[in-house]
Amino acid sequence: MRIVITGGFGFLGQQVADALLERRALCGAPIERLVLADRFVPAVSTLVDDPLVDVVHGDLSEHLEEIFVQPVDVVIHLASAVSAECEADFDLGMSANLDTTRALLEAARAQSAAGGPTPRVVFSSSVAVYGGDPALPLPPLVSESTLPMPQTSYGTQKRVCEQLIAEYTRRGFVDGRVARLMTVSVRAGKPNAAASGFLSGIIREPLAGLPAVCPVGPELRVALASPRRTVEGILRITEVERGPGGLEGGLPVNLPALTVTVADMLDTLRRVAGDAVADLVTVAPDPVVEAIVGSWPAFLDNTRASALGLRPDESFESVVRAYAEDHPDAITAERLQGGAGESRGRGRGDGGAGRQADAGRGR
C-alpha cells in the first residue's frame, strides 16, 4: 500500500505519519511507501530516516504528477492555508485550499480512469463550515445534518471541498471521506496563523515560561479535541469500510468534541501548573478573532463518530496532561501539580511547526 500525506510535516501530518509508521499497516495491508508532501521540510526530522518514507518537497499543485507517477492507494489530505490568513488573503485561501484540492482530486480521478486503483481520499475539513446566520441561527446542538453556513473564507473553502469530494465519490472517481476536525489543542511547536491558535498558545506558552495573550472573552465556549483524539479520528475514518456498521452514507463525520469555556481552560492551567504559570496569560479581546472563533458551534452531537468507536477527551485537564507527557521538553516548570508532566513522551517535537501554507494546521 502506498499512502500520501499532504502537509506531511505539519503538526498533524507528523502525528499521523508517526502513527502509521508505528503500525506499518493500514486497512489490513502492509504499508510499502509513505509519501510526505509539504512545502516546508524541516532540516532535521526522524521521519525521513524511516526506510518507508519518501519526501515530496514543494507546492502540492506543482508536484501531483510526481506523487501519482506510482499508484496511490490512500491520500490523507491535511495541507491547508489556515483561517486567519484566508480571511486576510482571499486569493491565498482559494488557491491553497480550493484549487489545490480540486487538482488533487483530478489527479486521483486520472489514476482511476487509467485503470489504476481508485484512491481513498481522506479530507480534513473543519467545524468552521458551520456558522450562525441572522435569519437562520445555529441550533443549540449541531450534527452532520445541520445546514453548514460558514461565516469565513476558510470555512467556505472547506465546505466547497466537501461537496467536491462527495461528487467525485458519487461518480466513482475516488472513495472520499471527510473528517470535520474540531479545534486541536494543545498543539506543540510555534504559533501559526490560525484564528484558533490561541487555544493552544494560552496553555503551551505559559507551560514553557512565556507570556501569552488570550484574544477572546473567558466566557466563550469552544469545541476542542486533543492531538491524540484527532489523529485517532482521522485514521479511523481512513480505515473504516463503507456500509452497515461502518461508514454509511455520504455525510462527513464530525470528530468528537470536548466543550469548554476559555475560563475552564485557564482555570485548568492554574490548577495543574500553579499561579505563576497561569498569570502569564493576559486577556485582551480582539474583535476580529472573537468574530471568527465565535461563529463556530460549541456543542456538537457525537452520535455518528461514536458509532465508529470514537470518543471525545475526558476533560481539559486530561488534554493538558497528555500534552505534558508527549512534549516534556516543552515544559519549563519542574512538574505539573499532581505529578503529571514528568514522564517522557512519544512526540517528535515541532519539526516545521511554525510553517503555514501547506502545513495542514487546522483552523
Results as ranks from 00 to 15, higher is better:
Asp133Val: 08
Val288Ala: 12
Asp54Cys: 13
Glu62Gly: 06
Val184Gly: 03
Thr268Tyr: 00
Met182Ser: 12
Phe40Ala: 06
Met149Arg: 13
Gly13Thr: 05
Ala257Met: 09
Phe40His: 15
Ala166Val: 13
Phe299Leu: 06
Leu207Thr: 07
Ser153Cys: 14
Arg171Glu: 12
Ala103Leu: 08
Ala79Gln: 05
Val56Asn: 08
Val72Phe: 00
Leu34Val: 01
Val283Pro: 11
Arg346Ser: 06
Asn302Tyr: 11
Tyr130Gly: 08
Glu219Cys: 02
Val69Asp: 14
Ala195Asp: 06
Ala273Gly: 03
Ala135Val: 11
Val174Ser: 09
Glu342His: 06
Gly250Gln: 14
Gly197Asn: 12
Leu34His: 07
Asp267Glu: 13
Glu32Gly: 07
Ala273Thr: 07
Gly250Leu: 07
Thr169Leu: 11
Leu52Ile: 13
Val82Trp: 01
Met1Arg: 02
Val72Asp: 09
Leu92Phe: 12
Asp264Leu: 08
Asp301Cys: 03
Val320Gly: 06
Leu34Trp: 09
Met94Val: 15
Ser124Glu: 06
Asn254Trp: 09
Ala305Glu: 08
Ser153Leu: 07
Ile67Arg: 02
Cys214Arg: 09
Arg159Ser: 02
Val283Asn: 04
Gly233Lys: 06
Ala225Leu: 04
Ala257Trp: 12
Glu239Ala: 14
Arg346Asp: 10
Ala276Val: 14
Arg304Tyr: 08
Leu20Arg: 12
Phe316Val: 02
Val72Gln: 03
Asp275Phe: 12
Gly347Met: 03
Asp89Arg: 10
Arg229Glu: 00
Ser126Leu: 04
Met149Thr: 13
Asp89His: 11
Val231Phe: 00
Glu32Met: 01
Leu47Gln: 05
Val283Asp: 11
Glu317Cys: 01
Ala273Glu: 08
Gly176Leu: 07
Leu300His: 05
Glu219Arg: 02
Arg39Lys: 05
Glu334Thr: 12
Pro148Val: 15
Glu32Thr: 15
Arg221Pro: 00
Glu66Phe: 01
Asp175Lys: 08
Ser295Leu: 14
Ala194Asp: 11
Glu85Tyr: 04
Ala195Ser: 15
Val160Phe: 02
Gly345Cys: 05
Glu290Met: 14
Pro51Phe: 02
His327Ser: 15
Leu12Gln: 00
Gly233Leu: 03
Ala113His: 12
Pro256Phe: 01
Thr268Cys: 05
Glu334Arg: 10
Val16Thr: 04
Asp99Ala: 14
Arg229Lys: 10
His63Ala: 15
Asp49His: 07
Pro139Gln: 12
Ser306Gln: 14
Pro71Trp: 08
Gln15Met: 09
Asp313Gln: 00
Pro71Arg: 12
Asp91Cys: 10
Pro42Phe: 05
Pro218Gly: 03
Gly341Tyr: 07
Gly217Asp: 12
Arg311Gln: 05
Gly249Asp: 05
Val69Leu: 14
Gly7His: 03
Val41Ser: 11
Ser126Ile: 14
Val75Trp: 13
Ala166Cys: 07
Ala103Asp: 15
Val216Pro: 14
Gly360Ile: 10
Arg221Cys: 00
Pro227Asn: 10
Arg236Ile: 00
Ala114Leu: 11
Gly341Arg: 00
Leu199Gly: 03
Ile31Val: 13
Val240Arg: 09
Leu98Phe: 15
Ser143Thr: 05
Val48Met: 10
Gly58His: 11
Leu220Tyr: 07
Thr261Tyr: 00
